[in-house]
Design a protein around this nucleic acid. Structure first.
Lengths: 217, 217
DNA sequence: TGTACATCAGTGAACGCGCGTTCACTGATGTAC
DNA sequence: TGTACATCAGTGAACGCGCGTTCACTGATGTAC
């Protein structure tokens, strides 16, 4: 990955640097994405990066963008794998469950990318007050869609739909953070699995307003 | 705070350094607690710190400890202010609500301390596998007690009690993180208040298993 | 009550580190005629 | 088809920064006799 010796004109240094950044971030998180590390890994002088990024922050954002897409993909794949033989009501809830578990498992498996994906949103304050829609991000969109589908399937009352995304995201993000940086990180994997399942179940109950299984129409 | 000129023998440099660290952390979080900054603020040479702390990490932990206590106190105060005229059932739920809102509001009001308080738990992996009880921390204990009291008051079914703390902490911690570092931080304060209330309500419903108000005994 | 001396709590200078960024530059590329 | 030249994409050296930490030191303190 680091010894493409097409000499001088590299060909596609921009993407090479992003790829190296992704590689560093994977284990080291946002802090590991430094201009010097990344250019060194690409076999190029440090300032070469300035041909392709305005500064370090610009590079970090580009890398974070990919981390966010990786998260979105992990969620999408898990949702897509929902068994096809479920009743529509059950399926709509199962999809929400999968969104949550995929988010948590991504954080656990790809801690550095998870940090980076969340971190990005931190420095987006471009133009004063923004509506949330301005920074809607792929993983969040998947959550929104899943909740909307629950309303259609009749497993989430329309009057409970507003703000449900925040309750879901909070629960799942909070657990991810606790599992990655908090005390839970010291627990054995199966214990963490069990806690994650429990947290997700509580979140689902919380937004639906009941722990009862849905009655099929 | 920084010009105690009791010359040379400072008197209580250890606590002075911790106090300065707390001051720096308040706005800058863990990263702002540097030996050089803190000693500079105390009017002392950088290496003087090594008389009282084994290294930087040692100092950071000492400071983080106080941040954690500040969080615990904020929660305790808010819980203590629960109106006395509530029915015991309502009061037990109201207390849980207050634990959650206090946690979130502390994070919003004291962002740096919040980061530090959570951060500490990160580097406590002293002796291999530890039981959770080993690192039980004041704010978490308050949550546990509150949930136990709900069981006693009959507002939380005993079979729903196990693991309830994780669902609560996750929801509230996740929202705090989103409100402090995530997209929600860009919203006006009253909007954040409303979202926080909604998230806490969902968390309570989630652990109780129902959105119904309790029936008094 | 006075003094010798061990201990304690600081000083001041320096170390090496890795970082982002800027400077003046040069070698490679591609385009116009 | 060949050549002049502008442009592009790199190089190499250096800058200043703040950090944690170590070294050999010295001034203040308190205790034993």
């Amino acid at each position: 990955m680091s010894e493409d010796t097409r000499a001088y004109h590299h060909g596609d240094l921009r993407h090479a640097l992003i790829a190296e950044g992704l590689d560093r971030a994977r284990t080291g998180g946002p802090a590991a994405v430094t201009l010097r590390e990344v250019t060194r890994a690409a076999g190029v002088s440090p300032n070469a990066a300035y041909r392709h990024f305005s500064d370090r922050d610009d590079l970090v954002h580009a890398v974070a963008n990919l981390a966010q897409r990786a998260l979105a993909q992990a969620i999408a794949e898990r949702v897509a794998a929902t068994p096809a033989d479920l009743a529509p009501t059950d399926a709509s809830i199962e999809r929400l469950r999968r969104v949550g578990l995929a988010y948590i498992d991504f954080a656990r498996a790809e801690r550095g990318w998870f940090e980076l994906a969340f971190f990005t949103q931190d420095t987006d304050a471009t133009s004063g007050i923004v509506t949330l829609d301005d920074e809607i991000v792929a993983p969040f969109k998947l959550l929104m869609d899943t909740l909307d589908e629950m309303v259609e399937a009749g497993t989430l009352a329309p009057d409970r739909r507003p703000l449900a995304e925040w309750a879901c995201w909070s629960a799942v993000h909070g657990f991810a953070d606790i599992a990655v940086h908090g005390p839970v990180r010291l627990q054995p994997e199966p214990v963490i699995d069990a806690l994650a399942a429990s947290v997700v179940e509580a979140a689902i109950t919380g937004v639906r307003g009941t722990a009862e299984a849905p009655v099929p129409a």
